[in-house]
């Protein structure tokens, strides 16, 4: 957005004091953001180095090495987030389609608000809800699953008696990322060219065929990047996991047992208040790893979006 008319023969006026001050202030603000982000990286790295070099015996749980300490946490983080996305993505696409193409047009906006309400609920409230409502009511289902489908590693017995399992966490996370993915999907679904849709209908397509032929091809990269942004949010979510999960330092695919791999963020929140010295460094080091993971995920999402935008422009 250009406010300046930059004609080739522009005459440069004398800089007024107010202009100079204002421009400097704006630049300083921008630079402050860059400095702050650099500071985040530098401080995290500086505070993590002692943990990387430390004698592993000083770490919580006395693992063989720092990496043995991190591995179950990193696995749990990715595992819980992946399960959450597995549930959230199809649901979000369905909801977004419902709002953009199925619901009566006059209802679309209020329905959008209702889904946005889910995003307005603070994560600590989700945690409280997950542990007091969702976990207990899911226990019968978990017992049934382990008894009948126990041969599948995912549902390996024994079932947790409290419901504080990875699956419960994944459900809570799915509910939390749902509004984000839905909002972004809805945005791209609505942008589908109306001419494409009408052309599909004119060829005799049913509503679903129209969606498959016009909306999905148009929105594919939007769906992918929305999912990646949701993934980034699920990876970094702290309180809901910290409150719901009963953690232990293991790597296991079973999602219904009382022994679950914790996540990096939840581990930090649970242990930070009682940690001191090297343990704090170790927690900050895991935080750095989380930062890197989310950075990679978000960068991929942004790259997909910008490639899509370029493809649209060149069309």
């Amino acid at each position: 957005m250009s406010a300046r008319s930059s004609s080739p023969a522009s005459v440069s006026a004398r800089d007024r004091l107010g202009d100079v001050v204002f421009r400097r202030l704006a630049i300083i603000a921008g630079v402050v953001i860059l400095v702050a982000l650099a500071a985040v990286a530098i401080f995290l790295i500086a505070q993590s180095i002692p943990a990387f070099l430390a004698d592993p015996a000083d770490l919580r749980g006395e693992p063989e090495s720092f990496w043995h300490y991190v591995a179950p946490l990193a696995f749990g983080t990715v595992w819980a987030a992946a399960l959450a996305l597995l549930m959230a993505i199809p649901l979000s696409i369905g909801i977004a389609l419902f709002i953009s193409h199925y619901a009566p047009r006059r209802l679309a906006q209020p329905l959008g608000y209702i889904v946005d309400l889910l995003a307005a609920v603070p994560s600590v409230v989700y945690g409280l809800w997950g542990i007091t409502v969702l976990a207990p009511s899911a226990v019968p289902l978990y017992i049934w699953l382990t008894e009948n489908l126990g041969s599948i590693p995912l549902f390996a017995p024994p079932a947790s008696g409290t419901g504080r399992t990875v699956l419960t966490v994944a459900i809570v996370l799915a509910v939390m990322v749902l509004p984000i993915i839905t909002a972004l999907c809805r945005e791209v679904f609505v942008q589908t060219p109306v001419l494409h849709e009408e052309a599909a209908y004119a060829l005799g397509a049913t509503r679903w065929e129209m969606i498959r032929m016009t909306v999905f091809p148009y929105a594919r990269s939007g769906i992918v990047s929305a999912s990646m942004l949701g993934l980034g949010r699920a990876l970094g979510e702290t309180m809901a996991v910290a409150m719901v999960l009963s953690p232990s330092a293991i790597i296991s695919l079973a999602i219904l047992t009382p022994e679950n791999p914790s996540t990096i963020a939840a581990n930090i929140a649970l242990n930070f208040p009682e940690s001191a010295g090297l343990q704090v460094n170790a927690l900050i080091a895991t935080g750095l790893i989380l930062f890197v993971i989310t950075l990679v995920v978000n960068s991929i999402a942004r790259a997909i979006v910008s490639r899509h935008e370029r493809a649209l422009e060149s069309r």
Partner: peptide
């Protein structure tokens, strides 16, 4: 970098 900042998990901001 503003985009990058959007993705910072809240707990990492706390650690910073």
């Amino acid at each position: 970098f503003v985009d990058v900042m959007t993705g910072i998990p809240s707990i990492v901001a706390g650690l910073f």
